[in-house]
Design a protein around this nucleic acid. Sequence first.
RNA 1: GGGCGGAUAGCUCAGUUGGCUAGAGCGCCUGCUUUACACGCAGGAAGUCGCAGGUUCGAGUCCUGCUCCGCCCA
Length: 879
Amino acid sequence: MEKAYDPQKVEGKIYQYWLDSGVFDAEINPDKQPYCIVIPPPNVTGVLHMGHALDETIQDLLIRWYRMRGFEALWVPGTDHAGIATQNVVEAQLAEEGLTRDDLGRENFVARVWEVKEEHHGTITAQLQRIGVSVDWRRERFTLDEGLSRAVREAFVTLYEQGLIYRGARMINWCPRCGTGLSDLEVQREETQGHLWYIRYPEPDGGPGVVVATTRPETMLGDTAVAVHPHDERYADMIGKTVILPLMEREIPIVPDDYIDMEFGTGALKVTPAHDPNDLEIAQRHDLPSILVIGLTGKMTEETGPYAGLDRYDCREKVVADLAQLGLLERIEDYVHTPGQCQRCDTVVEPLVSTQWFVKMAPLAAKGLAAVDSRKVSFIPERWTKVYRDWLESIEDWCISRQLWWGHSIPVWYCDDCGEQTCARSDPTRCAHCGSEKIRQDPDVLDTWFSSALWPFSTLGWPDETAELDYFYPTSVLVTGYDIIYFWVARMIMMGMHLVGREPFGEVFLHGLVRDEHGQKMSKSRGNAVDPIGLMDEYGADAMRFALAQLITHGQDVTYAPDRLVGARNFGNKLWNASRFVIMNLTDAAPVDLDTVELSLADRWILSRHSRMLAQVDRQLAGYNLAQAADAIYEYVWSEFCDWYVEVAKTDLYGDDAARKATVQTILRKLLSEILRAIHPFMPFITEDIWQRFAPDEGSISRQQYPQAEETWRDEEVEAQMGLLQAVTTEIRTLRAELKINPGQPVTVSIIAPDEAATSLVASQRQAVCSLAAVEQLDVATAPADAPSDAISAVTGGVQVYLHLAGAIDVEKEAARIQKEIAEIEQDRLRSKDKLQNPDFLNRAPAAVVNKERAKLAGFDQDLEKLRAQVKRLSSISR
RNA sequence: GGGCGGAUAGCUCAGUUGGCUAGAGCGCCUGCUUUACACGCAGGAAGUCGCAGGUUCGAGUCCUGCUCCGCCCA
């Protein structure tokens, strides 16, 4: 084995080995319990970012853990066609060639997108493989492949037949740049510095009329009323009268409506039903007409007369200028507002009434809520349940049609003869209503999230009643970021409940988003995105995974911390070298039966700690506390196994006692075997590589059993005893360090223990202490006639440690050091003493807590007494 | 406007039902080629746990209010 672990050399080979040996393949196995995760499908044209790295790390960790615990673990991979996002990517490519999608025509354009898809598919899957994803590649799916298209079709037709999908004219969000309608979720609001224009609408008889305030003066061309609050005294006598809409010279009514906020602007609201959802509601209450003034390309419609054909922003300027000219522009104020923007291109969207396809959400939302109320689905962390509930409880119908070319076609045909719709599972040749052959398919495609909503069951074969669906559905857990609870999680739950009749997954683990080192959201446009591939090139996939695992705490955003990568990489190297050491020393190992052979204190201690660690990892992983699980392993492996046990074991490994040697070898083999397996879900590559050297005949570590905590090894007493020895050892080391005695230079130490038990403990472990602290001669006594006069001293747990010096000691310095220690302990002692003098504490605190406090105080007293004696001794020396 | 999350060592963060003498990684200081590892070893310094109240024998942990930062919804 090399002196240092080199991830670049092994990761590629190991992944190939896994693929070749089929260890990730899952089968339907009635003898095993299924455990299934479907991957949140990355956009097929996307590149891997830190969010994926985090998401895949968690899922792979869980899948590998369950697989090793004997579950039939299936992780289904796949990619998403990502309708609008992908279409935009390809359109941007075309733009560079000076082309638009219309130049190509629909068929050629879609063919082109498929080409791009094929190109990118290899990239994203190769990148996923770098992370080490243990997915069953045989089952890979694509949201636009044949099977999933059939699922989409089935879902659409079913919902259509049930009246849950309908076509209608409603207020939607329109992106003039993308040229498509959007759902409410695809609109993002960002604070923008704008203006508030105050415009006077005079009365027909030339009276002053009312002044309205608006952030969008161009929409006034479509105004059909002015609304005021019914209790607004300023306008009491205006209600029921009319005013003249300037520029259009249209007479419009003043209507009373409770919706009006009297504080805002002048308290008078211009009503543009075609371009504002609230205005539309007011219009419906007052039976007002609606006039579409901004068209689908963002240009003014024919309804706007002289303004027709103008871009909406140019029109705004002209309207404002014209109003100023007429003397009807009262004033302009700066104003911060939050216009909706297209999630994909940031263009300000236009709310407008349009005929689109919608999913009727109320009945589905009820099922989605029931799934959570009945605990069929639970969120981790739990607080997201409320976010989910709040959304479903006030949900609007979902606009699912998109005026795009890349996506699932809407399976509806319109009849030119009778005008009816035909919605069918297979393409019809004639109208289902009149039999006419003059039918045309709806040109629109579906929102990409419609197919995503079916993902957990469509990937398992739905709508067919496949064995996979039967065995693996409902899946076990969904792992994703909290940013797509509405987009994806909620819709999967609703669709699963409604279409399959069962929840798509039992648990939803929502993790945070990855931010840069300054806590900023990572994004391409900010230029602060960290490339996970670069990290893996530099530190290795295992280091990245482990670092991420250490940062995953419940729902908290993850701040990228380069330091963590270094720490994780170092940990991998530590594991590598500890393994190297163990493997090197097992050459002539003859295993012994640990249940019958005599074990040393250190043996029993490490077995106890080991067992404790495994229990901890188990508990923390079960609760999705990945960071705590990772830390438990890290801490144990480095600070206990390596720092103490391996060091103690060296004495036996290099010694003459064959029995002891065999025992230690047996323990090291067991521990290493279990450590490797315990770490494998976190760091799959390095553990596999070591495993192949450690146990070459046993096949992939990914198929070994996950180690279980063995309660019988737990031993509090042994842990306490070892704790004392560790404290003594550390004291000797501290004294050495203070005197700057080199590690190679052996010293003589006297130990004075407070009682027989401690004395025999230290005496029996003399060899270990000597080796750990490089002590040549160690004397142990219960109570010496005289404290050594040529030594400096320290006290721990009632045990006095004297380090003998060849020459005279620096009495001043030594006294100062001890005084400082006394002062520190004194503080703690006082706090402890106060507590124990408080009768309420004695009466009300549990006995165990009180006893613990008493022991603590006794310990302080004991140490203080000894330290004071030492001060006395020093002063006698100085005389 | 409503809701949620965060504020703990120089930095990034742990701290599960209140018992803590508040931890880790990185950084910092001192010493060390100790034959697994300098991606290392040993030792050390460093925190009024955002602020103000309250509950309690006991609060980083529970309650109330406030400040600042971030996010979501309207």
